[in-house]
Design a protein around this nucleic acid. Structure first.
Lengths: 335, 335
DNA sequence: CTGAAAGCGCTTACAG
DNA sequence: CTGAAAGCGCTTACAG
């Protein structure tokens, strides 16, 4: 068990003061080139690294940021995390990961812990339960504590924080219009997240794009059995010609239901999914999907946070960044 | 921007010394009940929380552990992380996440950073490139530095560390035997990880289970086009009756290839995948899969690390924990 | 150019 | 039972 060498030990070996060693290593102009070289050489020899905890204590920074993820099994969030990590690495920051499992209680605990000074800033996608119960006190608490907060993905809340996400309404309106333009009349939407902000917006986009008096077909439930029933009704009874899905689970549900009822995709049913390319390309048939570039969202969120960290007091107004999405055409919408 | 209250300020408000406040809050028996109560009351009122950085500096611990993940988009690792996070939370530890992207260079950087004292321990699934190049110096370096290391999932290396994984040989031998028992003769295996330890073991298990002189059918490549070709040969030319897959990508490849060549699953081809339940149940048809309980692996890895952290010097021998796997029968293996 | 001193926020042996 | 002091490993204004 090798022990890490400290400034003090280095100073003793060099017969100079701790201050001198510290300054030399930090390239202070106060120090003579000669001394600086001696110090650096020995430091290198012993593979000296400043103890980050001590540095943090001095600077009252932690050099880490906290990321709150609602559900890491969702590959979207996993990929967002990947983008965050890459950007944090570039900025020399450590990423502490917290998983809320979509639970308000857990999210509160996490925020509580974050106010104690573990992190310099927080990236969060607000948990489903939190949105449903509209309880945001713990988030305000973070902000009041002076901890910069950036909302990602789930951003339509009235909280004074920077945010990054996609144009949910626009994206879904656009996709709906594309189907209409191809002459498809009966278009349905499937969702398991209709009670969440993003879900509502996506449904809104769908509705806005449909012509007046056109019937809406909506299969919405977070409960698997209910979603299944509603999807079956939409596909088998209502016989929609196309379905747009707002999330992973509803996308897969539509696929399964079509399969079970021997409805041919894309001949009898076009499907546009909201899933990642790592699934979309492999499904049978492959599925056209809306790409929301998760890694970019993560990197962007991190950049917003960095901007805050670097001049927190200068700019009080909150910024919002909306990322472009892209519809990728695969087999499930072929004509 | 509320400023956090410190021990010093608390002491001043109470007209006692900093030591007294500290002891009172830490339930030292030295302090009178009366004083302790006064202190605690005020601390509560001001929502006092000890600065973790200062505590860490005193204790020479960081209260955080590092998790190195090769590829977070792989839902297996995402779920492992979920298990780690849950267990860490229980133990009051913070989890810093690092993503190696299967790269040796990045893994080295991470290990380098970890030796500076950011974390008390490390959980790692060794990157693919690292395994291929057999360069483990950076891992030895961690161990030499006295940082407890736990290997998870990818565990067949000669590194003095605790480890947790599955019985790859046994699992694949068992699955192969099950197919044989149903009277299936031509069994193939598809893999994109044949150059990795776990991949080799899984293929070994498959080979061991087949009777003498039985032909092996192996579609192995990490390159998508090559894998596709080999899979096509296996399904179309060799006409195997069943395929066992060692990983997510090969599983999806087999599905796609069967679909493209109109090979009916399960009538003409049985498939056993190595993917998570979140995909398996939704595919069309649903796919029988080997469940390796990722969350349990994560929690188990964390527990091994906790054990190390709590008595690092007492027990020098390394422990290994092998988790049970389970074959879940769904539509792709129906007779 | 170098070093002594103060201080970041805590804990804990030691003295009283 | 309470408090002064030392110290964890650094940085940095200040003195020389």
């Amino acid at each position: 068990m090798k022990n890490k060498i400290t400034l003090k030990e280095l100073a003793k070996l060099l017969n100079v003061s701790i201050s001198t060693v510290s300054k030399a290593l930090n390239d202070s102009p106060e120090i003579s080139t000669k001394t600086a070289e001696r110090v650096k050489e020995l430091a290198k020899l012993h593979n000296y690294r400043p103890n980050p905890v001590a540095v943090n204590l001095k600077s009252s920074k932690s050099g880490t940021i906290g990321v709150i993820i609602p559900n890491i099994s969702n590959s979207f969030f996993a990929r967002v995390l990947s983008g965050i990590e890459a950007e944090a690495q570039r900025a020399g920051l450590q990423v502490i990961t917290y998983i809320s499992n979509e639970k308000l209680e857990r999210e509160k605990q996490i925020c509580d812990m974050l106010t104690t000074g573990y992190v310099d800033g927080v990236l969060i996608a607000v948990a489903e339960e939190t949105q449903r119960k509209k309880e945001f006190d713990h988030l305000y608490q973070l902000v009041d504590y002076g901890i910069p907060v950036v909302l990602y993905d789930r951003i339509n809340f009235d909280i004074p924080a920077d945010r990054i996400g996609i144009d949910d309404v626009g994206t879904f309106a656009d996709v709906t219009r594309r189907l209409l333009a191809k002459g498809i009349k009966k278009i349905g939407i499937a969702t398991t997240i209709h009670h969440m902000g993003v879900g509502k917006l996506r449904i809104d986009g769908y509705k806005q794009a449909l012509p007046e008096n056109r019937t809406f077909y909506i299969a919405n439930s977070a409960r698997p059995e209910v979603l299944k029933e509603k999807t079956e009704k939409m596909l088998v009874v209502d016989k929609v010609e196309a379905v747009i899905c707002t999330d992973y689970v509803s996308t897969m549900r539509v696929y399964r239901t079509a399969y079970e009822h021997e409805i041919n995709i894309p001949k009898d049913l076009k499907v546009i999914g909201f899933i990642g390319k790592e699934f979309a390309n492999f499904l049978t048939p492959s599925i056209s999907y809306i790409d929301q570039f998760p890694e970019e969202m993560g990197a962007g969120a991190m950049q917003l946070l960095e901007a805050r960290l670097n001049n927190y007091n200068k700019d009080k107004s909150n910024s919002e960044r909306i990322l472009k999405t892209s519809l990728v055409d695969l087999e499930s919408t072929r004509f």
